[in-house]
């Protein structure tokens, strides 16, 4: 994907969550990972890229066109992509299958039957068939996140944004979700994710961006950045998270 981020800033009250971040990614960067300490700006940057927040200054050019500022155009932009949250954010009053099919029907204008068929098809691929009639409250965290992932990819999004997709899960469930993300990657899905899973970021991402204090402290090819970190902050960060 090509993403040009220039001088992007976003402030919440007194905190500068994203501080003049500039970085470019190119066509052959299929997966981009945002890493860094909690509160470092990963989620905010992801929301700016995904059109869920608007920047205070700076701009993002995605595949040649600027991420719009006006709400209706932003909505159209979000429709074309997919977004996954750390805490799943499924709709608790709907069954799993309705969670997947509702956006297809209401946002993308599919017929009910087609949407249901599509939801079943993905659920089958994600190993969720027996859970489709359950409500989110009856599912484990890993199952909920897989349903949420199914919801995010059901309409074949151009870009998939994953905001710490496994941070709320125990190790076994983490693996289930990471397996699916890896499968999506292998099928050619373009992905931007923020994550604390360094092993996954190192193995599966093409480019990595290290954010701390809202600033781009280091970025580049994943292999190079992980093997040979240039900044002291990144070396310290990696030493800390890799220690155990």
């Amino acid at each position: 994907m090509s993403i040009e981020i220039s001088q992007l800033s976003k402030r919440y009250g007194a905190t500068l969550a994203v501080d003049s971040v500039s970085v470019n990614f190119y066509e052959d960067d299929q997966v981009v990972a945002l890493i860094g300490p909690s509160g470092g700006g990963k989620s905010t940057l992801l929301r700016l890229l995904g059109g869920l927040e608007s920047p205070d200054s700076g701009k993002v050019i995605l595949d040649g066109s600027a991420v719009p500022a006006e709400e209706e155009a932003l909505r159209q932009f979000r429709m074309g992509n997919g977004f996954l949250f750390q805490s799943f954010n499924l709709f608790p009053h709907l069954s799993a299958i309705e969670n997947i099919s509702l956006p297809l029907v209401k946002v993308h204008g599919w017929a009910e039957n087609d949407a249901t068929d599509r939801a079943k098809e993905i659920a089958d691929r994600f190993g969720l068939v027996e859970h489709l009639e359950k409500s989110p409250g009856q599912l484990s965290g890993g199952q909920q996140q897989r349903i949420a992932l199914a919801r995010a990819v059901a309409h074949k999004p151009g870009l998939l944004f994953l905001d710490e997709p496994t941070s709320a899960l125990d190790p076994e469930m983490k693996a289930e979700v990471l397996d699916l993300i890896e499968e999506l990657r292998l099928s050619g899905q373009r992905i931007v994710l923020s994550t604390h899973e360094m092993g996954f970021a190192k193995r599966s991402s093409d480019k990595v961006l290290f954010l701390s204090g809202g600033r781009n402290l280091e970025s580049g090819q994943s292999a190079a950045v992980f093997e040979n970190p240039q900044s002291k902050e990144l070396r310290d960060f990696l030493a800390k998270v890799m220690k155990w």
Binding site: F85, P103, H108
Partner: peptide
Amino acid sequence: SSQWLSARAIGLTEGQ
């Protein structure tokens, strides 16, 4: 508010 966020991410309008 996470329900609003999720709905926005999917592309639902405010009315929807």
